Computed example of a mutant assay.
Amino acid sequence: MSTPADVRLTLPAAPESLEQVYGMFETFWVQCPDIELHERIRFETATVEIANNISKYVATDDFSITLADRGGEIEALFEDSGPPLRFDPRSATMPDELAESGRGLALACAAVDEVHYHHENHQNIWRLVLRRGAEHTRAR
């Protein structure tokens, strides 16, 4: 098993920042070579969806992401100084199949085992958790 690893990045809240998020994952996966491909895909999908939503919809200048390997689980922690959300992100569902948007949050919730959100000290804080080697359960 790999040793615990953390990778942290602060980015402008702009769609162009997603390329840097993908680059962040390249660094993270090198540090965590024993994470299974299916776990990588699920975790990266969820993380990129949340980063995309922050970049597009949150009124903030920048945001930070920390990716962490905790041995039995991998975690993404997001922080931004935007206003608090006005809905419960855990209630996200897939929109109608003809909808042109609205899948990102529901997809993120479906991809990982835990999605947590709270607003504290003028910060939006998101925490995504994928338990490694465990049967996929969606505890939000």
Rank of each mutant, 00 (worst) to 15 (best):
S101M: 08
L11A: 04
G102F: 12
E100F: 13
W29D: 12
A14E: 12
T60L: 08
H122Y: 02
P95G: 15
D80M: 10
Y22C: 05
G104A: 15
R40E: 07
H38L: 02
S101R: 09
M94G: 08
R131Y: 15
L130R: 04
S64A: 12
C109Y: 00
N121S: 10
R132P: 11
L98I: 01
I125A: 02
A5K: 09
F28G: 07
A106V: 05
S2C: 02
T60P: 02
A14G: 08
G133W: 05
H38M: 07
A134K: 15
A111Q: 01
R138E: 06
A14C: 10
A92Y: 03
D113Y: 04
P33H: 04
E44I: 02
M24G: 14
W126V: 14
F87H: 07
F87S: 08
M94E: 09
D62K: 01
A99N: 12
R131I: 11
L67T: 05
S2D: 14
F28A: 01
F28M: 05
L85V: 09
D113A: 15
D80H: 03
E120F: 13
V58H: 00
V30E: 06
D69L: 01
I50P: 08
M24I: 09
T60Q: 09
D80K: 07
F78C: 06
R138A: 15
K56M: 06
V21W: 13
T45C: 12
D69E: 04
S64D: 02
H116P: 00
A139Y: 14
L105Y: 00
A134Y: 15
I50T: 14
Y117A: 08
N124M: 02
A106S: 04
R138M: 15
P33Y: 02
A108V: 02
F43A: 12
G104C: 10
V129H: 11
E26A: 08
D34G: 10
E75F: 06
A111D: 01
P4V: 14
W126P: 10
Q20R: 13
N121R: 10
T137F: 09
A68I: 05
R90S: 12
V112A: 08
Y22I: 13
S2F: 03
T27C: 00
Y57H: 12
A76F: 03
G82L: 00
F28Q: 03
E79H: 05
E75M: 15
H118S: 11
E79P: 02
T93R: 07
G104N: 09
E19Y: 07
F43S: 12
E49C: 07
H136T: 02
H136W: 00
R8V: 15
I54M: 05
N53L: 11
P4S: 14
K56H: 14
A13N: 03
V30N: 06
I125D: 00
A59C: 09
